[in-house]
Design a protein around this nucleic acid. Structure first.
Lengths: 219, 219, 219, 219
DNA sequence: TATGAATGAGAATTCATTCAT
DNA sequence: GATGAATGAATTCTCATTCAT
């Protein structure tokens, strides 16, 4: 995990209400969980990454599972506020005269960058969603509707501005856009092949194009 | 995991070359891994699910990791042959006079049904890809190019038939289609809300529509 | 273990009262125990070496320990009769006109050859003696006095013939001769360096010399 | 293993660089290995003998085999320094005017006492040498040449002082002396018959006599 | 009788959690 | 508060032994 991410997570997610040690443990846990997965990560790993004694962890978190819960809760709040609300506000603020394509480009570039940074937690979240029913319920039933709902607000604005189709349910559009971004990011993360700037932009172009225009021949 | 899936896996994936007990262990491993994830699953869990003694597992698989490898190998073969090759052959065989929309509908319905059944293994595969570099390399570098390549052949046929745009790289189209199906299936699997037949069909319609036509307003 | 040894053990130790399968298991156990030691040897190893099924072993021997006991019992009889009694009889028969040095040479050469062949069982026996009190008691208290006693008879003959000192207790001479042979053989067995014929003979010469004349300067 | 031995091992072999618990585990391992042999000894046995939890063992030693290696390494150093080097130094320091016999007597008495105490490790070492090629190679190829070489230095001094024969290769003399001591000690350890002080001294006398003068009649 | 699949008790090892310092 | 040694329950894996075929 990059230095930058640690700082970023530290500032944006944990922010105000953590002491130095607690923050270091939290950040270390995010790092180790994202590298090894929750089960394979040991509290010793976390302690070493945090530069504290193993026992110290349990002063701040009752159990190992507690660390995970703390991460997931903090992150789901962050995901909602920073990933869904703020961009919409930005759209309202900045997109008055811009083309839809440009707006989407700016936003998605920004989101991609953010999602990329946030990948460590996303990976943990994903694997927990895959196997742990309680986490799945807690997150999916809470998070998805809220984000979807926010997206709907945003999408309705786009409709009103005549930039996107009004005959599609926003929730389904959200799913498709989300899917495209998810797999795009995953490919970037997981593949060993690294893009040049040009390839990256070209790939983005195709992504936007497909999302906006679909793959069918236009009459 | 549904009864049906077990039978399905038994018939389609493992089929001929497994004795009763080996099959039971394999199926139980698929079930337990898919419920708990590889790390959280214990060989005791698997033995209990298979109705055999714990030691019996190790007559058939050298190590716990060996069970996973066996599943992944068997599954990746199956994924390639049954999920990628066969549908393309069917397309060539059956789609001569059909509309593209109908063809996609048939295929995706079929694929969705299959992916749905195959979810237990996909979940394990996914979580392994998230955290284990060796599995990631083994599968991504082997599987993705082969499936992508097969899709390209198929996509080129569609281009020749004038049904899809020829100005998009097939690999990027594949990613987008794959992403849409993936998240669509994931939603069906992970969400507790169950669709009626009509809602399901309507959702499909939107999916096709978005894939084919995009979300932008058509001039 | 050499082919020869197997035949040798087969003919001399097991001989009459074993069926083909029992003999094969016994011989295989000797081989495997001598290679790995009793504890590290598995019944599967033995079964494979014997070319029988694992279960078959337990038709002939109640337990794994039973195989060891059988080997030790059979071997201790053999050791007593073939290693201690027969050579002494030969000495009486053949050494009438020979020099002591020649007699010792012949005997020790022969004994060395035999001990060498018999090493597989000796190694097992040794390690059992080291750690298992019951085996230790059974063997040492039974075997050592009998062999020592036989040696005493032999040694007294040598004394009467005026070839060896009469002022040394035979039991202590036996211990010293036995010690020299034991370590000599062990070195041959365990060291990776292999002698040429000349080196071997020269080494023997020194051994005889030391046993007979000691290391002190003679006045 | 006697209390005395534990203390002795603690002070002389392990001595300075072990914490209380590590020492207890090490000593317990020596005790248990020497009683049962490496393979038959369980980590549970060792933990119980040491009065610690089983898991604690693995804080100090990575694996069970690691305990053995640690013992063997510490012991082989000890064997080299305390059993080979120090006696030679003592000879140089104290034997100026003494008879060879007296010198040997003093030293061997002292060495015997030490070897006797050290028997627990020797037994483990012996059984490992019997069956484990890696241990055999590590020890025989490393230890034997070093000790032999030291003995040669010592023996050459004896030759210069005109006390022993100069026509015998030191390595063969060493083997013979070593053999006599080894079996002498083994007999003391393994036999249930215990000597009185007089019998012990008398036995020593014979041992010295045989080593020095051999068993042949002197002309 | 011979087999070898199945067993399950027990082995080494790991690791979250506790607690004396 | 912070530490890290100690714990012991839990885990993976082994293997002597049994038993249906």
């Amino acid at each position: 995990m990059s230095e930058y991410l640690l700082i970023f997570l530290g500032d944006c997610i944990l922010g105000e209400n953590m002491t130095g040690r607690e923050k270091r443990i939290f950040d270390a846990a995010v790092e180790v969980f994202s590298k090894k997965g929750y089960d394979a990560a040991t509290t010793k790993d976390i302690a070493e990454a945090a530069g504290v004694a193993e026992g110290t962890i349990f002063r701040y978190y009752k159990t190992k599972k507690g660390i995970l819960h703390s991460i997931l809760i903090k992150f789901s709040d962050f995901l909602f506020i920073d990933m869904a609300l703020k961009p919409i506000e930005e759209i309202f603020a900045n997109s008055k005269e811009k083309e839809l394509k440009q707006v989407l480009h700016d936003i998605i570039m920004d989101r991609i960058a953010m999602v990329d940074k946030v990948y460590p937690v996303v990976s943990v979240l994903l694997s927990e969603i895959l196997f742990k029913e309680d986490v799945r319920d807690a997150l999916l039933q809470k998070l998805v509707p809220r984000i979807t709902h926010s997206f709907e607000d945003f999408y309705n604005v786009l409709i009103k501005r005549g930039l996107v189709r009004s005959d599609l349910p926003a929730s389904r559009v959200f799913r498709s856009v989300f899917a495209n971004i998810l797999v795009f990011v995953a490919q970037n993360k997981l593949s060993r092949v690294k893009y040049t700037r040009e390839e990256f932009e070209s790939d983005f172009e195709s992504l936007f194009d497909i999302i906006l225009n679909g793959i069918a021949v236009k009459e």
